[in-house]
Design a protein around this nucleic acid. Structure first.
Lengths: 217, 217, 217, 217
DNA sequence: GATGAATGAGCTTTCATTCAT
DNA sequence: TATGAATGAAAGCTCATTCAT
């Protein structure tokens, strides 16, 4: 999930040289932080603890971030940017609206399966970000929302009709995100099996739900 | 939403004297606390701030609860117990499975509309509870889950067949809770209108989704 | 040097009741802080050290001040307000301009002799204050400056002429403050004796210096 | 103000190589440091900030001095040594005592006008030096004090009499230093004009003050 | 000559909690 | 019932300094 360089990249990268090593460490660090934050929450997680976990000193952590909030932002921004990039590709690939929706659902769930901690942090700790940190993440979220909303609007506007978001399609979209984002509250890889199956069931519920009969698999 | 007395009732009540006045103040206090916690999160909310909000001193707060965690527990337990009681009544009232599901969805959403802060706290801060505090809330949640799961299983098992939870009905139930619990992330009373309509749309999606054709309103 | 209540009074007083005890402790605390700050500078003085000195815990200190800067402000504001009040009285009492100047010089030096630490802090750490903290102290200083400047202008404008600050009298005033404020860099009560004598010598230098012959004592 | 080599010369010079370039950079560095320290105080100034200001890395700064205290010492020692050298020349040049005093006052003020930051640091941060660092600067200061004290004693002991420091002349000397050192608290080149005029006014005050009539300019 | 990376020590501030009254 | 006073523990952050390169 190594991210694209952006104007909001981590302090460590802004510092300059030696991308390779620094970035590896940065990734380790963000991953460990995500794990702790996913478990105990952002406020309850001390930078000290993250440091301990990666074998770095407290002060050493601050070589990589300007503040605790920047750390949280890095996790959220990188995660969402990475998810968005993957999903934009999935949505752009050819196929029927049904097929594209299936790809989005599966893409989301499999991304979650690969990065559960990061996704948990994104879902639970958006409010812990403020100012520009908040805004920049919010923007990525909005783009992701529209990716999903457009396909659902297309499905609901019926064949031949112009796709446009309606009050109803907006809600269905939000229902879908609800289902997706709640998954991390209950999903157990052992008990629930691979996420592809989950995606199909969700797809079926939605397609039938909005009256687009879906030939069952 | 004044709660039933339980072995886990508030410190203030356990203390004994003059129920009436104490309880009024306790309600005010829990309501204000819920508002702050909903806004800033449990960890980020200081008891001092709750005190300031209700015009009590910091030390004075400790007359009403033994610890910050107990305060959180009171909010969650009372809220969930109150919601559960109402929903159990709704589920027990006569009517078809479809009708009972409708009542549950509407009941949940209208409860949320009346107690948004408390519900937010319940959804976001379950993990902040530990030990017996956690367990007792978890138990109420479980009972609530089964209330919903049973009706959905009944709907999915087909007429005449014995209702029993299957892998599939379990997931549909969790999808439904996802939709319900995500609502507070986006619902705007002004923009989205009364929750009854929302409940109907969700009901339609689910009934169609699981293949129970629903005569549209 | 217990101060007049003002809109800028200490956190502890703002808290309300029990003035007597609180104020005694507050005085002790400000005195001890002034001693440490005078010795090591504001930045180099840790709140911990002040606490240790008065037998209070670090956290206990924050019951009395909202911040380290407020502590510094209290010292400076109280000291200057107290000095100003005394000097305004000295300047208002009847007597020739020479006599009033003598009283001001002696008043300043004897105030310094009684509160050397506080005065040192005022002279050396004005720049450590910011915003409103700075402004409010600056205002008192300005009033004190004018008290001195007016008398010196009166002396320099000659008998019968209207007293008004000129470029020259402004400089003489600043020279006088230079002499006064530098005193704490070298004054040794043992070696230099009581400050009354010092005041007389400074007075003589100034009066002769500006051409107002002074009948020597 | 490039300094004489002394046993206390900067780390960088002690290191040996290529004097010229190193010294240029050292001067830049000390100048920038003086500016920051004059503005915010020694404790409040971080080496990092000095580095940033001159475009050097934090670690790079430590090539030029062994510790933060050495940096401060370099500023103070070089400044004072340079001032002392100039003033010793001024005092040694032929002329009446009045004339030599005039040269000292003007020399001091014009040195201040050329190096305001350095002089501010010398006046405000002497106490931040310890041990040998303190001692060595103190010694230069003492020599400077005596330069001034001797002339003033000469003026006060009357013609024909042996010049010797008396209690009175000591105080006048200290008054003079007070006036001189306070100047940086208020002097504004625009408002107050060139320092030569200032020196003359101070000279007049002092000469008249001690009873040495001075033919006004 | 110079720097990227790292850290120990220390700082200000906050906070849940206690207790005498 | 309620609060003023106080504190232990911990948090985020900064900084002078070091060292391998």
């Amino acid at each position: 999930m190594t991210s694209l360089p952006t104007p909001l990249q981590a302090t460590a990268l802004r510092r300059g040289r030696s991308r390779k090593t620094t970035e590896r460490k940065l990734d380790l660090l963000l991953g460990s932080a995500a794990e702790l934050i996913a478990e105990k929450g952002f406020e309850a997680t001390a930078i000290r603890d993250v440091g301990r976990k990666v074998g770095a000193s407290l002060a050493g952590m601050y070589y990589y971030f300007a503040s605790k909030e920047e750390l949280l932002h890095q996790i959220q921004y990188r995660t969402f940017a990475s998810l968005l990039a993957a999903q934009e590709k999935a949505a752009a690939a050819p196929g029927s609206a049904e097929e594209r929706l299936r790809r989005l659902l599966e893409g989301h769930l499999s991304f979650f399966a690969r990065h559960p901690n990061e996704m948990r942090v994104c879902t639970s700790e958006l409010r812990s970000l403020t100012g520009e940190y908040y805004r920049s993440v919010e923007e990525v979220r909005r783009r992701y929302y529209h990716l999903m909303a457009d396909i659902i609007a297309e499905l609901m506007s019926g064949p031949g009709r112009k796709a446009r978001e309606s009050v109803k399609s907006r809600r269905v979209t939000l229902f879908v995100f609800g289902m997706l984002n709640w998954v991390f509250m209950w999903h157990d890889p052992v008990k629930d099996g691979p996420v592809e199956q989950l995606a199909l069931e969700m797809l079926e519920l939605v397609l039938n739900g909005i009256g687009r009969r879906r030939s069952s698999r």
